[in-house]
């Protein structure tokens, strides 16, 4: 197979993609583990209580902001830990975009550094601009 691989002109892209794939997988597994730990604490404490999602109330402040979620998670509240896992999950694609900027810069591809910075700006606007 070496002939096949070296004849692929975008081998650098290939290596970058493999790294990105592993980065995403590690991020997801980490997030799922944190959610799983939170789930055990949450179900142990509230498993017997009634569950009702018929009406929309919106989550309280401590589950809507990064500061609130960290505070809840650090005091070992189950739902806070779950929410922290979900924030880690949401951060995984952001980490991928940040890594892509670095990878395009290493390839000296200024045009794609620019495109990727736009995508990162939109993501940061979503997370920071909406007042989390």
């Amino acid at each position: 197979m070496p002939g096949l691989i070296s004849s692929l002109k975008n081998w650098d892209d290939q290596r970058t993609e493999t790294f990105i794939g592993n980065l995403l997988r590690v991020g997801v597994l980490l997030a799922a583990s944190v959610v799983g730990i939170g789930a055990i604490i949450f179900l142990h404490k509230y498993g017997g209580m009634a569950s009702d999602y018929r009406a929309f109330h919106g989550e309280p402040e401590q589950f809507r902001t990064i500061r609130g979620i960290f505070h809840e998670a650090l005091t070992f509240r189950g739902r806070g830990i779950i929410q922290l896992g979900l924030v880690l999950l949401m951060a995984t694609p952001v980490a991928r975009v940040i890594f892509s900027i670095w990878a395009f810069a290493a390839e000296k591809d200024r045009m794609y550094v620019f495109f990727t910075v736009i995508v990162l700006a939109v993501l940061l606007f979503s997370f920071l601009g909406s007042g989390i």
């Binding site: 919106g58 989550e59 309280p60 902001t65 779950i82 939109v122 989390i132």
Partner: peptide, 22 residues
Amino acid sequence: VTAAASAGVYLSRGYVDPGLAM
């Protein structure tokens, strides 16, 4: 990446419930 762009808005608006999303 597409879903992450709207996730921030949903989280801050209180649409992401830990007990259900888990």
